[in-house]
Design a protein around this nucleic acid. Structure first.
Lengths: 263, 263
DNA sequence: TCGAAAAATGACGCCTTGTCAATTTTTGGC
DNA sequence: GCCAAAAATTGACAAGGCGTCATTTTTCGA
């Protein structure tokens, strides 16, 4: 493998900087709050340079969404590694979703925004496929737990529907619940005080309804949530995403030089 | 109530025209595709006149979202009026959601878009409250069916959680599923061919898991879907929303029927 | 060291939204 | 029917954003 020249390192580093600057903009203002001019200004570079990295704003959102799915997948994989029965392992994935939304809320926003024909349609197929691959891998992780449950005899697949059906159901319930929690103007007004608790209880009811044993037991479940939550939050703290190491001091000098050399 | 002068009628009519023009724009391009200039041009008026009706683009989306919830509520109310057991009636609401998304997809988009802090934050409190009221009424319709089920002995409320919990669970599952169906780049790639069917099966599993009797029976359920679907589609065809008659007198009856509480 | 290739630049064209002073239309009292 | 006040309309304008591209600067391999 080729070593990176200083220039290439600089370019790579700038790419992470662009994404880091764009992330909060998108998170609290949507696509329209992502200003290419602002990023260029912040990075003390010309706008054209930013367009050298990403052909348009949408592509930046997609790049962030790919990061998002990577982070989620990492949490999923960690969650299913925790020792426990099949029912506990599927619950762990649900908890991973919660941790994901809480700890990586800015990435979650990017993931939501990329889900729009308008945005999606302006992005490159190349990166689209990367995202799809990530999504499939997330699904596969969930599907693996379901298959294990069937193999262990905790779940029968007769009338319940295909494995993908169950994945989709859990996905819908959790995703829908979290989106509603995050975006519904007045959940409290309609009587939902504890959205997270409601999502968890409903997930368990769904699993019960599918005949996934052992059935829901609040006390044992609460203890498991506690345990998994702690484990995952620790995992998050240790992985520190987005903070990419500086490419060494070469960058500082280059920057200082550039300051003087501007027209 | 005061009679409207011709001028006032003209203004009111223009308001419906603005919304009708805005609806498809928003539906297939999001907020950024809603062009005030285009609307003004299409209506052959000056842009300032449009701003006389709505202080900004976001307010137009909110107005459409209010229409959306009105339409949904109308479908919900129709659905629960169909004679049947509690389990059938709750299923009817689910079917109403499907019909809503299919028949009023443009409104559904507006409803999704208003769910963003950026958009919501720029709208007037007055209209926000109207929307909240509509949302609460929708929830109340669902909650009513649940209460009926408890009263009829089809459902026990012990460990299952509060009525609002169940509402929220169904809402999340259906909303999440429909949003994923509408916006997930490649559901087929992850193995979900029939999203609608998956949503239905999962809803039934959830209800089973809550202990809501009688339990899921595919054949009987399929027949019920057929029946309710037909009834609701007929209802949609007869109510012809969005096509507001010219401010003549013919409109009065339709409007009186549909308007529960505007102003 | 040199010349070709890669990267950076920033002014430019074209688009948007929302404002506001000036103008036209409507209304209501007589 | 008439007129003044109020309401509605108008469209030029300011502010700002995206994406382009001809030109300039930098990098890199031979």
């Amino acid at each position: 493998m080729m070593r990176l020249t200083p220039k290439q390192q600089q370019i790579r580093f700038r790419e992470t900087q662009i994404l880091e600057l764009a992330r909060p903009m998108i998170a609290d203002g949507g696509l329209s709050a992502l200003s290419m001019d602002a990023i260029a200004h912040e990075l003390q570079t010309a706008k054209g340079t930013i367009y050298n990295h990403f052909p348009n704003k949408e592509e930046i959102v997609l790049a962030l969404a790919v990061q998002a799915l990577d982070l989620r997948l990492s949490l999923f994989n960690r969650a299913v590694m925790i020792r426990g029965g099949s029912r506990q392992r599927i619950a762990a994935i649900g908890i991973a979703c919660e941790v994901y939304v809480d700890e990586y809320s800015e990435w979650f926003r990017a993931e939501q925004i990329i889900r729009h024909e308008t945005v999606w349609g302006k992005t490159s197929e190349k990166r689209q496929e990367i995202l799809n691959t990530c999504e499939i891998r997330c699904m596969d992780t969930v599907a693996g737990v379901i298959r294990d449950a069937v193999a262990a005899g905790d779940l029968e697949m007769s009338a319940a529907g295909a494995i993908e059906d169950i994945c989709f159901g859990l996905w819908s319930l959790v995703y829908g619940g979290l989106v509603l929690e995050a975006t519904s103007p007045s959940l409290a007004d309609v009587g939902i005080g504890d959205a997270r608790g409601a999502i968890r209880r409903n997930c368990n009811a769904l699993l019960d309804g599918l005949g996934w044993r052992p059935f829901y037991e609040p006390a044992a479940y609460a203890a498991w949530v506690e345990q998994v939550h702690e484990c995952l939050v620790t995992h998050v703290a240790s992985s520190k995403p987005g903070v990419v190491a500086l490419p060494g001091r070469a960058d500082a000098t280059a920057r200082a030089e550039k300051q003087g050399g501007r027209k």
